[in-house]
Amino acid sequence: MISALVWLKPCEAKENDDGYEYKFSRYSFEDTVLLRINCPFCGVRDHSEFTYGSDASIEYPALDGSMEDWVKAVFERENVRGSQFETWQHTSGCRQWLVVERDTMTHEIHSVILAHSGVEKTLPISNGEAKA
């Protein structure tokens, strides 16, 4: 919780003739963040219950895949400014791995689903009603 209070936010940098211009807009580095994640199973919870995993857009090659594909999957990462998909685990909650669409600029979370599509289907919209 304390570490969350001092988490730094990125600022926006724009290239112009003189080099880079740093724009301290709504989300500047001085701001602080405390994410709340809407877990599909548990509802909205503090991010202290969750653990960040990695980039959810990685497609892992087969176990006997090529060296090149594995190097790409394990070591090569985009450094996205804006919306990206991430895996998070609700470690202190329902233990589910989630795919979270988060904006790296604003920390806004656009969507959260269970990573396991087969399990996602078992989630009812309300008590007693299955989605699928």
Binding site: Y60, T87, Q89, R95, A115, H116, V119
Partner: peptide
């Protein structure tokens, strides 16, 4: 434990 859960839920559903 977390690793096994990750594999089962994200890679080998």
């Amino acid at each position: 434990m977390v690793w096994l859960e990750e594999l089962l839920q994200t890679r080998w559903p």
